[in-house]
């Protein structure tokens, strides 16, 4: 029992928690930007795959790590715009469009992977982002070493939280973005373009989602493999509701999830063979459902979420 508690004091535990949380931070931020603007983006799972694949492919073909990050973000933004053409401009079902983006991005990534590497059993590996280990951190106990092990992409995730929070709550752009998800007609009356704002939100949000995927291949691991996203995108959609569409709470939710996930992996080794491993592997998904259930009662969905806006129609 003591061993189960001691885990919480280990720097390696917290390092793992942050590492698991990082892609989710990107994903939840991306999802909340889209949803704040009134668009549910179920393309997230596929955009994660596309970001992971294109970021890694860029680097494995000799590109710089940051070029890989940029390519992933651009691919994500393009998929977001494709989503927008269907849902914002043509007003088609956001559910079905999102799922089709997921299917399209996933199958294209897998097919493209097989085109690039027709018959390799072990994919080429890359040199991923290295831990930053800034000297000023080492003085802090537990959290210092835990944060020291993180790469530049983790710090980028933290920065994105701050920037998103600032833009959403402190700038005219953020006000317009929030308004377009609550009352698009009012935004139109202000002379702003509903279409433009929503397309912009989809591009930016989807770029962030793709960064979540790229984090996995460029920082957490050093290669791309099939099924590596494994529902992380859907977890982000659940965490977005849990975070009540607030960037700060999104960070908290992702870190909580990361801590829980890292904890169950360690418990697994403690529990030995008494409990089947699958029980532990189910926990993250069940936890996401629980988070959704807890948040559902007080969830304050953006009022125009999933409602297409067509000028002149009420």
């Amino acid at each position: 029992m003591m061993e189960a508690l001691e885990i919480i004091g280990q720097a390696s535990f917290w390092a793992a928690a942050i590492r698991i949380a990082a892609p989710l931070i990107f994903g939840v931020l991306g999802a909340l930007i889209c949803e704040r603007a009134g668009v549910l983006n179920l393309g997230i799972e596929g955009i994660f795959v596309a970001g992971a694949m294109t970021g890694w492919l860029t680097v494995s073909m000799g590109g710089d790590l940051w070029l890989g990050v940029a390519v992933a973000a651009l691919v994500g933004a393009a998929l977001g715009l494709l989503h927008g053409v269907f849902t914002v401009i043509l007003g088609l079902s956001q559910h079905v469009t999102g799922l089709s983006i997921t299917l399209l991005a996933t199958s294209t990534a897998y097919f493209g992977y097989r085109v690039a590497f027709p018959s390799v059993t072990t994919p080429p590996v890359i040199e991923p982002f290295a831990p930053l280990n800034p000297a000023w951190l080492s003085a802090i106990p537990i959290l210092g070493p835990a944060l020291g092990q993180q790469t530049a992409l983790v710090w980028l995730a933290f920065l994105c939280v701050a920037v998103t929070a600032f833009v959403l709550s402190r700038t005219p752009l953020g006000l317009a973005l929030r308004a377009v998800g609550d009352n698009p007609a009012a935004v139109e009356a202000q002379g702003l373009s509903v279409t433009g704002l929503r397309m912009g939100a989809l591009a930016a949000g989807s770029a962030l989602m793709a960064l979540g995927g790229a984090f996995l291949t460029l920082s957490a691991f050093n290669s791309f493999f099939f099924g590596m996203i494994n529902g992380r995108g859907w977890v982000c959609i659940a965490l977005t509701v849990f975070a009540s569409w607030q960037p700060g709470k999104a960070l908290l939710g992702a870190l909580l999830f990361g801590a829980f996930d890292a904890y169950q992996v360690r418990l697994q080794t403690l529990a030995g063979s008494v409990v089947p491993t699958q029980i532990f592997l189910m926990l993250p998904y069940l936890l996401s459902i629980l988070a959704l259930v807890l948040a559902a009662r007080r969830a304050d969905y953006p009022r125009a979420l999933m409602k297409p806006y067509i000028k002149g129609e009420r």
């Binding site: 179920l42 998904y285 959704l292 559902a296 969830a299």
Partner: peptide, 29 residues
């Protein structure tokens, strides 16, 4: 969950796919 607690069914049904596959794996092992 949807009718009683207003929990969105898209995410819950999606996540249950992963849970179910793990459950099947557990039973088969």
């Amino acid at each position: 969950l949807k009718t009683r607690l207003a929990v969105d069914e898209v995410v819950t049904t999606l996540l249950l796919n992963f849970v179910m596959l793990l459950f099947v794996q557990m039973m088969l092992e």
